[in-house]
Design a protein around this nucleic acid. Sequence first.
DNA 1: CAGTAAACGAGACGGTACGTCCCGTCTTATG
DNA 2: CATAAGACGGGACGTACCGTCTCGTTTACTG
Lengths: 204, 204, 204, 204
Amino acid sequence: MSTKKKKGASSPTSPELDARVRRSKETVLAVTHQMMSETGLSGVSIDEVSKRSGVAKTTIYRHWPSRADLLLEACSKLGSKFEVPDTGSFRGDIEALVMAIASYLRRAPATKILPSIVDAAEHDAKIARLLHAQVRAFIMAPLYEVIERAQKKAEIGEDHDASHLIARIVGPLFFRRWFSGESLDKNFVRAIIQSVIAAVDNCQ
Amino acid sequence: MSTKKKKGASSPTSPELDARVRRSKETVLAVTHQMMSETGLSGVSIDEVSKRSGVAKTTIYRHWPSRADLLLEACSKLGSKFEVPDTGSFRGDIEALVMAIASYLRRAPATKILPSIVDAAEHDAKIARLLHAQVRAFIMAPLYEVIERAQKKAEIGEDHDASHLIARIVGPLFFRRWFSGESLDKNFVRAIIQSVIAAVDNCQ
Amino acid sequence: MSTKKKKGASSPTSPELDARVRRSKETVLAVTHQMMSETGLSGVSIDEVSKRSGVAKTTIYRHWPSRADLLLEACSKLGSKFEVPDTGSFRGDIEALVMAIASYLRRAPATKILPSIVDAAEHDAKIARLLHAQVRAFIMAPLYEVIERAQKKAEIGEDHDASHLIARIVGPLFFRRWFSGESLDKNFVRAIIQSVIAAVDNCQ
Amino acid sequence: MSTKKKKGASSPTSPELDARVRRSKETVLAVTHQMMSETGLSGVSIDEVSKRSGVAKTTIYRHWPSRADLLLEACSKLGSKFEVPDTGSFRGDIEALVMAIASYLRRAPATKILPSIVDAAEHDAKIARLLHAQVRAFIMAPLYEVIERAQKKAEIGEDHDASHLIARIVGPLFFRRWFSGESLDKNFVRAIIQSVIAAVDNCQ
DNA sequence: CAGTAAACGAGACGGTACGTCCCGTCTTATG
DNA sequence: CATAAGACGGGACGTACCGTCTCGTTTACTG
């Protein structure tokens, strides 16, 4: 029974895979993820992953053509989509979401790793595509939903470019988290939220 | 004592370095800088720098305790401060400055390298300090000046936190440049400028 | 019992191997032989044999316990016995046979491989036995026959040790072929023949 | 004193070499030689040599471009020239020399390795050249001397081709040692000696 | 202007990791 | 049940850099 194979679509890596392959990949990814968090991307060596995981180096290279690809896949399992809040009002939704994002930026170990992915993306279009897709899927998408919903409910005008709005929400947070070294304190986050609310309000 | 030259009769003060030392350091830094631009931080190897520059590896390690330190110093020569414009109005100044920054982000080879510095900063407090100092000196400082000047002239209210404003200006640009993959087109830049102007205008 | 087939209704006797098995072994041996000639013993890898032959690695290992055994069997199919000439005289027979052997040493691809078998024989008694058996069967046996026949016809004395004579005939050829790098030219071959004839002649 | 360097021509590997290099090469060659004798050429792995010798793999590859080259050099230190005897007569000299060679073939560990060198020589002209040179220098040269001396003293005729004679002496010994599996017993050796003596005697 | 001390080039060294090739074992599914 | 397909742990290959370590040889200052 255990070794029987059906059309099972439940496998984590990809459907319909040799059980051994699945096990190997899972183990390796887990160890990689672990090491990434400990020492950063550059601290992950295939030799060490192999040693710790008990999976032979050969096997690792059978599944990922290079160290970079392993790291890439390990990274791509990193993000978690923010839940789209539904507080009833645009302001409430935005508040909830931005607080969540800020909190994530402050705490999540994944944020230690992001810059090296961004760096890799500068030199490799494939990685760039992945990065941007992830950013869109995990961070921008929920904001899109909130904005669109508000536009449908006519809470905010149709004339606001959602993409611009999102950049104006997320950008400042990212800037503080990775570039300026200033804290992502409550004050700052509230100011960002406030500025967006103000922007979409019919002040002008 | 340490910085003093022993027989220092002719050497006036401290920064009077041996001409040979100066030459070596300059050559090495130049080559490092060159290689950084070509292949990114991770593409710079001491062996190669030595080969290309003609400066012996020993000498390089004499001047920088490790590869990281060399890269660090090479990076710290990287940025160029944006000139503070003086168009007469806050709006004009901001426009000029933001356009310049956006243009820099679009074009400058240094922007390819920044993420790896950011990455390094995640793992090394010393690098982090340098990074933040550079960001403040080269990017934030000119904006500070423009904002302060406008506040002094009472063009904009004193109640705006300059640091917040700056994050709201630069953040969206950075976000697009490195994270979302969207273009930094004129429209977007103008929208950012506009949003800041609106924010400081006495709408509310 | 051991060679009997269990359900052996259709299989008549013992050497009646499963047709599939026979096909596999033949194919594999052929490919192995081919590769051996191309690149020498050390150039034969099971992986490559499997790839080229279409026979799965598993199957190969089912039939030969190790790479060495496969090579061994492939080698044992290598030699070709020299025909025993019958010119009517000892001199004529020897001449014909030695010329044939010399020609074989000069031309046959198998001679490129022999040293690696000899090498293997140094480390493995089983291989040694096979090697010596082959040498005796393919090279020495025909000479034996010629010598014995001549002795029976009283062309040459009974007191000559055939094994010594053979070593004195074949040895010099082998020496030049594999050790000294000198050519196996007509002159040399004739000199060897002449020396043997002279030795068995009743000069002394 | 110890670190002082002169024109010393006594260094084993090559004159005027960095002492560190000399030490490394010596150590590595010694270990290689040791392993060769234990397990044959194919049993020598760079990794293991490195481990046993304490010399880093990198360093080994710095001095020998590949495993083969290391083995080659180790092999080339293997042979020992046979002393040219001077018993006063050609017969005596030949006897002494052939007995020595036979004894060497019977006993010397190097003879276990020769076939793999011969094998390598089949695939690589460089190795072939080395092999042939060594065979000539260590085995053929002494015989040449003995033969020439005898010719000068008119003990044997000038018309004998020394190279042919040598092949007729050494060939049979080699044949028995490596190919036929027959013993190199006293009887056989004496028979070979006798046959050569007879050949050069003025019988015909 | 000779003597001395530094900075230097050259490059050997031990070491870690890379990515590849092949071995021999194993598991799974097919005819 | 022999087979094709191929995953797996393991060992070795040869390469690229790292950072350390002698070596002699310039250089430049000093005395």
